[in-house]
Amino acid sequence: MAKPILKFENVSLSYDGKLVLDKINLTVNEGDTFILLGAAGSGKTVLLKLAMSLIQADTGRIELLGHDITHLKETELFGIRSEVGVLFQEGGLFDSLNIADNVAYPLRNQKSLAAPEDEIAARVLESLEFVELGHTLDKFPSELSGGMRRRVGIARANVTNPKISLYDSPTAGLDPITAHTIMSLIVKQRELRKTTTVLATHRYQDGAMAANYHWNNAMHDVVRASPYGTYADLNTTFIVMDEGRIVFSGTQQQLEASRDPYVSQFVLHQPPPKLGQSGERGHQLPA
């Protein structure tokens, strides 16, 4: 039986009197891919931050890597966080450090990961080459494009070989080609390093790619894990959030079959067709 790696039990959180998360229950098992879909402000980022205890829940219980982290002190959390990789929505790269120092940051600052400088340098280079940015060691974040900064963020998140990686809107604001590259790297990381993956996004395409593609080392690209028109079995769960609540949880097939107006918008990019009307999607103009 798969081991739970992240668990939320009845977790709620309010900001300024407004309920941001409402009784969230979810379990991410080791090796799973977890796709959090939701519109802006639906609570995806807050959920990811709670998963690392960067913010504290008002009620409920959060378990990460077998530890109850709900009420742990900051110093007690550092050891647990060292086994988690995180890519922030804004990248979270340190402006004042060059790319090499940014990627080396967790290795130099996590006590449990302490290593000699030459080993750190080798791991930094390996991690940057993994995202095909080995030539940017001496550059600063401001010298890189948005897509390159996200790739550096992925390199930094995964330089510690974490057991679980959390990606917060990794493709937000990127062009489709760069977004594809970023998602390919996430799939590559998941498959080559066997990392449990939690991906928050508002783009269904990202979830569909994580659910149906795997990394092919020979082709050096992602390839479909099952023929077109079928669903691959890559342990992927989709969650849809709306105003702090989970309104859908299930497989990609179940998500695509959903007739909930909010949920289906993520798949169809418009409300579902009304029953009893013609098979066309969307509203019909009066004759």
Partner: peptide, 18 residues
């Protein structure tokens, strides 16, 4: 403030620094 809004402070905490 800039570090806060660009999530650098969250990153710092997530990566093992107080």
């Amino acid at each position: 403030g800039s570090m806060k809004v660009t999530e650098q402070i969250d990153a710092m905490r997530a990566l093992g620094t107080d």
